[in-house]
């Protein structure tokens, strides 16, 4: 966690664009929340022409985060992510609807640890994340 799922039309984005969006999302999320970079997952799901995905048609940004952040932080995060997505995809931000849903951190185990609540990350958690990143 976090996990951002980007619904995109088939063949809409090149590999370079997808990677640029993934990097931008990582920068934005970590800049906003202080989370370790290695915890930010971004997945692109293509929808063939004439078909729909679970949120309808076209672009959609579906984020899943740990619960516990203020509504203001969440809205700013979604806005910043959408702006970056739109810039790289070369579409209007209004054409990328989205949402961020939340679940308790304690419902997820990542890197061998149950995730801490936002603001309760101890030094051992950051150390483990850094070690994982260094091992890549």
């Amino acid at each position: 966690m976090p996990h951002y799922r980007c619904f995109i039309p088939q063949d809409a984005l090149s590999f370079d664009q997808r990677q640029e969006i993934a990097l931008a999302f990582t920068d934005i999320h970590c800049g906003s929340t202080g989370a370790p970079r290695s915890f930010v997952s971004v997945t692109f799901l293509e929808t063939p022409e004439g078909q729909t995905h679970e949120h309808g048609v076209g672009y959609y940004l579906d984020g899943g985060n740990r619960a516990g952040r203020s509504e203001e932080v969440k809205q700013q995060l979604l806005s910043d992510l959408t702006q970056a997505f739109a810039r790289v995809a070369n579409v209007a931000p209004e054409d990328i609807p989205g949402r961020i849903t939340e679940n308790p951190a304690s419902w997820t185990m990542e890197g061998g640890f149950v995730l801490p609540e936002p603001g309760e990350e101890g030094p051992e958690w950051y150390a483990a994340a850094e070690a994982a990143a260094a091992a890549d």
Binding site: R18, L23, R37, F39, S41, T43, S106, D136
Partner: peptide, 29 residues
């Protein structure tokens, strides 16, 4: 080429379970 983690290509698997509500946290862990 469609999955990234930390901005790099991902090798991570995510196993997301949905279970009946109410499990004690200790048991969930």
């Amino acid at each position: 080429g469609f999955g990234f983690r930390g901005g790099r290509l991902s090798t991570t698997s995510a196993v997301r379970g949905e279970i009946p509500p109410g499990l004690q946290q200790e048991t969930r862990v």
